[in-house]
């Protein structure tokens, strides 16, 4: 009761909480796209996969009564969409970016169509782990109320990083992404590797979507994704195709998104639209500052540019 008034100190706390709450879908989608793009293919359709994951996760949770089955179902649906993308792109002359846009439309359309009966009912949702149990501050406790998916995502980033660098399958994915000819010469089936990488990416994007409907904000409706999936795909470029940097980028993006509401909550309302655009402006500024014409896209998988 004593410290309900944090005042301005609430802002950094809100940014921390926001980073944890908002970043998870960005994290999962960007990690998924990271795998896909490292294999030399772009899947712009992850926005559709995300929305489909949100809808189907909610639906599975509602039908089975278990939110974790919902998460799993969302992942499976996501990997099916990813596999479809991977399969079609495996055919000669098909442009992966164009197909991604079409898949985005299909995913969103299907999710909205099939999700109509899910708008009203309430499905069981995921809980949180109270990491802030040690603190007496209600604010800190709520900021540190963390969902397991976030923890999984945070653990997944370095794991993927390690996997891509140091394991056999990581090497195969990277080889396919750097030079399909070399990969073929080594006897790898380029299309199959990419298909699997796209399906894996779709799985993660579907799980990211289920976070939206099953934890935060925690219900299914059609305005749920205001382009988070598309933004997450863009963050992969920002993170220069590194899973670790995807984690940082997602946290930054989620945290910056909390600045606007946090400022208003202490009475600073002037120019709130501009504050709400902070994540985008900040990302752009960092992007410009960190790019350079000379080592342009040195980290970019070589096959990404050549694949059209």
């Amino acid at each position: 009761m004593s410290d309900t008034t944090l005042g301005l100190w609430g802002i950094p706390l809100a940014v921390l909480g926001g980073a944890i709450r908002v970043s998870t879908p960005f994290l999962f989608v960007s990690l998924g796209e990271c795998i896909t793009e490292r294999s030399g293919r772009v899947n712009l359709g992850l926005e559709g996969t995300l929305v489909m994951g949100a809808m189907s996760g909610y639906g599975f949770s509602y039908l089975t009564g278990s939110p974790w089955l919902g998460v799993l179902g969302a992942g499976v649906i996501g990997s099916l969409l990813g596999a479809l993308h991977g399969f079609i792109c495996g055919k000669p002359r098909v442009n992966d970016i164009a197909l991604g846009i079409a898949m985005m439309l299909l995913g969103v359309g299907l999710a909205f169509f099939l999700g109509k009966p899910l708008i009203q009912p309430t499905a069981p949702r995921l809980g949180a782990i109270p990491f802030g149990f040690f603190s007496s501050s209600a604010q800190l406790r709520s900021a540190l109320n963390v969902n397991v998916l976030f923890v999984i995502g945070v653990a997944l980033a370095p794991l993927l990083h390690f996997g891509l660098q140091n394991t056999r399958w990581g090497l195969v994915v990277r080889t396919v992404g750097e030079s399909s000819e070399a990969a073929r010469a080594l006897g790898y089936n380029v299309n199959r590797v990419r298909l699997l990488a796209t399906a894996a990416g779709g799985f993660l994007a579907g799980v990211g979507g289920s976070f939206l409907s099953l934890y935060y904000p925690g219900s299914w409706n059609e305005g749920l994704s205001s382009g988070q999936g598309l933004m997450a795909v863009a963050l992969v470029i920002f993170a220069r195709w590194s899973p670790k940097r995807c984690l940082y980028a997602s946290l930054l993006f989620g945290g910056a998104g909390a600045i606007g509401p946090a400022l208003q909550s202490v009475g600073i309302t002037t120019g709130y639209y501009l504050w709400n655009a902070a994540p985008y402006a900040l990302t752009l500024a960092i992007l410009i500052a960190s790019s350079s014409a000379t080592r342009a896209s040195a980290d970019m998988p070589a096959e990404l540019g050549a694949a059209r």
Partner: peptide
């Protein structure tokens, strides 16, 4: 309302494929 989006999605996926 999403029916047309489904149609567009199917159409464009097939067309591009």
């Amino acid at each position: 309302d999403a029916t047309v989006n489904v149609l567009q999605g199917i159409l464009f996926v097939v067309l591009i494929a």
